[in-house]
């Protein structure tokens, strides 16, 4: 879908590219894109280099992106001060549990709706889809009240279970199952496999490549989540994931700015690395969503 057919033409033809005018236009466009890339990256670079500066240097009125001297010690301090290993661990626990819940719940539901033909299935699908029309933030208050009354605050369960709700994923997976040839399933049934066996041995293996894409996308999305983990874990600082903890720290303490920045940069690294290393999967995942929107 997003293949890199490097030499295929777009509006500018290959012939025009050989003329002086064509090359000037092309270089102009390239210059704009390079400039924009720099602007996009500056906040990351700034967080990184501010983490290397002294506190006074950061607020020096002279424009300086680079530190006079790199104080790597700030990073060591930030690592210990924010207890980053624990924060990464908490975030990983929150995200992994959420991922399992989301993919597990959605797979089972999608498979049922697509292949097992439950009575009223269309109505149920519609009820799932309706939740897509109302963003979660609009009903965050009653959601919080429900979680409070069920005793789900202050534990990961309040997060994991709620992450099981993703109508979009059910929709995508149902479409996927709908598109599989039914002979695959019929053959297994003739051989005497029951519904669970067909699901485990036929349906699951077929979804593998798609699951990888969905898992990476979900991983990044859950890693980004802030408000709901903040509300659920407000009074359990020892369980808070990284962005919640950094926010609460920032609210109540007087951490030196350079240590803060060093911490923020390290907090941004895991998702950045994932995006760079797994770029193909991520972009394929996005186009899954793009087709419909």
């Amino acid at each position: 879908m997003l293949s890199d057919s490097a030499w295929s033409r777009a509006a500018i033809s290959n012939l025009e590219l050989r003329s002086l005018k064509g090359q000037l236009i092309y270089l102009g466009m390239l210059a704009i894109l390079v400039l924009l890339s720099i602007v996009v990256i500056v906040p990351f670079v700034y967080a990184f280099t501010s983490g290397l500066k002294t506190g006074r240097e950061i607020f020096s009125p002279n424009f300086n992106l680079l530190p006079a001297q790199a104080n790597w010690d700030n990073y060591v301090q930030a690592w210990n001060y924010f207890q980053l290993p624990r924060l990464f661990f908490n975030t990983a626990v929150m995200v992994t549990g959420g991922l399992i819940a989301q993919i597990g719940v959605s797979m089972l539901a999608a498979y049922s709706l697509s292949r097992l033909k439950p009575l009223g299935g269309r109505l149920i699908m519609l009820a799932f889809l309706v939740t897509l029309m109302i963003p979660g933030i609009a009903y965050i208050i009653p959601l919080y009240v429900t979680a409070a009354r069920l005793g789900l605050l202050g534990s990961y369960w309040g997060l994991w279970l709620s992450y099981g709700v993703n109508a979009f994923m059910i929709f995508i997976l149902k479409n996927f199952f709908d598109g599989l040839p039914s002979e695959l399933f019929d053959a297994a049934k003739v051989d005497g496999a029951n519904a669970v066996q067909v699901f485990v041995y036929i349906a699951l293996p077929l979804t593998r490549s798609m699951l990888i894409v969905l898992a990476i996308l979900t991983f990044v999305n859950l890693w980004k989540d802030f408000l709901w983990p903040y509300l659920v874990l407000l009074r359990s600082p020892e369980l808070q994931p990284i962005s919640v903890f950094l926010y609460t720290m920032e609210q109540r303490s007087t951490t030196p700015v350079n240590i803060q920045m060093a911490g923020y940069f390290m907090a941004m690294l895991p998702p950045l690395l994932i995006a760079i290393i797994l770029q193909r999967y991520m972009q394929r995942g996005l186009s899954l969503g793009a087709v419909k929107g």
Partner: peptide
């Protein structure tokens, strides 16, 4: 795409 993957809060 990089700015889209980091936690917005950070």
């Amino acid at each position: 795409f990089l700015p889209s993957v980091i936690p917005p809060l950070i």
